[in-house]
Design a protein around this nucleic acid. Structure first.
Lengths: 209, 209
DNA sequence: GCCTGTGAAAGGATTCACAGCG
DNA sequence: CGCTGTGAATCCTTTCACAGGC
């Protein structure tokens, strides 16, 4: 990664941010590191050290102001304005993602849908029209989309990555089972329920069946 | 975690396993650590050291036999037979998961669906009937289900965790936005697209809105 | 020769523990 | 007094580099 801040720290920031947003909704205005630590099952020192990479956000004797810390984290993560996203592949998972309302309050909005099935073209999901896959590059360029979510069949994934990276996409969230290889300057992340389940079963003592 | 093997190593095993399965499908029978390393963008030494926690699976001068290594990893991860899973919450995401065919070849099968919406009870998804949430504990006990996937509204998640843990569930895959707190002997993992996207945007240079 | 498995070395991350501030 | 921010110490992970086997 291209920063002085360790990537493992950056990966924790979204957790902090989302937890703080929930606290704010509950009316919490101030919180010390040890209380946040307990909520998240990690150590208070880690939280303080994580934040210290970016500045001094707390106040001695009191803790952190929730609202201020949220704004700092949103700024650091660059989610203080909305990122428009292209969603490629509108099957069942794509439908669920297009309708997911967790994006909108966290800095993202799916603004364009693409699918290769002619029967779907022109229909809408969550008021967003599904466009033919042929229009992918044109639309990404026109709207300057930098993020894309892949929810299409795995065999098509690598080719689509080539196309969208050419068109300017810099971050790709991969829901397919394909292992995509990195391109310089492009971040690819994989969401894979099988891996998570297989990690869990390592620790579970089988009782039967 | 309760083992001598570092958890970070365990987390990589599913990636190795799934990659090896793909290689086997492509007809690859043998692979040296450096080739696997290149596919996965990690170092060959790490792969060898990871495997070395569990035994000696390779052969000098040749590498690893793909089929043998797959069986070893399946055994280590306990996915050499099928884990039945309860899926709780059959909205759009739940539908997508119930129909997802990536589970079946990797050690898992969703065998029971639950929802609190009376209109859905009795209908089936992928030939699995949706049952009322009241039957949750009974069905988990009867079928001795040890894994559950949560795909329901976040506010209900914590209560459901209590109930399914009481009924014997040992591993929970949490698709809700709720931060669930740990119970002794129960593994809870969170899949959260917002966190992944927010991690990506940290690294992307914004060119425009 | 090629490749694994592994001690030893290097590099990171987390925790400790406390100075210093409100 | 309570809490942050942080150097120092500890702990953990990765890489190096090579002995030994095929």
């Amino acid at each position: 990664m291209r920063s002085a801040v360790p990537d493992i720290v950056v990966r924790r920031l979204p957790i902090y941010l989302q937890t703080l947003c929930r606290l704010r909704e509950d009316g919490v205005e101030e919180i010390p590191s040890h209380a946040l630590a307990e909520l998240l099952d990690i150590s208070a020192a880690r939280i303080r050290k994580d934040f210290s990479h970016f500045g001094e956000f707390g106040q001695q004797g009191r803790g952190y102001q929730v609202g201020k810390l949220i704004r700092e984290l949103q700024h650091i993560l660059q989610v203080d304005s909305i990122w428009p996203i292209a969603l490629i592949g509108v099957g069942q998972l794509g439908h669920a993602l297009a309708n997911y309302d967790g994006f909108s309050h966290n800095g993202f909005r799916i603004v364009a849908l693409f699918d290769s099935d002619p029967a779907k073209i022109g229909t809408t999901v969550n008021d967003i029209p599904i466009q033919p896959i042929e229009q992918l590059e044109g639309e990404i360029r026109r709207r300057q989309l930098q993020l894309a979510i892949l929810a299409l069949p795995a065999p098509q994934a690598e080719i689509i990555v080539d196309r969208i990276v050419m068109a300017g996409v810099k971050g790709i969230l991969n829901y397919t089972s394909a292992t995509l290889h990195a391109r310089p300057g492009v971040i690819i992340e994989h969401i894979n329920p099988t891996s998570v389940l297989q990690h869990m079963t390592y620790y579970i003592e089988r009782t039967s069946s």
